[in-house]
């Protein structure tokens, strides 16, 4: 462990942070999306006449909630493939 260079430390920390971020950042939006989908399907089962409007509203809400996890994915992709910290502090 003593002969690790700062670039290696930054890389290791980046990998750990990316893994943790993708786990938490997909877990929580998926949970919330499941809740909203359950509510919408309950409404559809209770009132089948209103199911087209409910389906449209549910799809829009799911896409808006999905955006949060997409942001997490983008940050993780930037950290993994184009890490700005390494090039900024250690000159690439």
């Amino acid at each position: 462990m003593e002969n690790l260079s700062p670039e290696h430390i930054v890389t290791i920390v980046t990998i750990i942070v990316a893994g943790a971020a993708i786990v938490i950042g997909t877990m929580i939006p998926t949970w919330v999306e499941g809740q909203s989908a359950v509510k919408a399907i309950e409404g559809m089962a209770r009132q089948p006449d209103a199911s087209p409007q409910l389906r449209t509203a549910m799809l829009i809400a799911l896409a808006l909630l999905e955006t949060a996890s997409i942001y997490v994915l983008l940050v993780v992709l930037v950290l993994l493939f184009a890490n700005p910290l390494v090039t900024r502090f250690f000159g690439g």
């Binding site: 896409a63 999905e66 955006t67 997409i70 942001y71 994915l73 983008l74 992709l77």
Partner: peptide, 16 residues
């Protein structure tokens, strides 16, 4: 921002 990043993130993650 949200319109563009939503579409971009979904398509890129699928392709990736």
């Amino acid at each position: 921002l949200s319109l563009s990043i939503r579409l971009f993130g979904n398509i890129v993650s699928g392709d990736l």
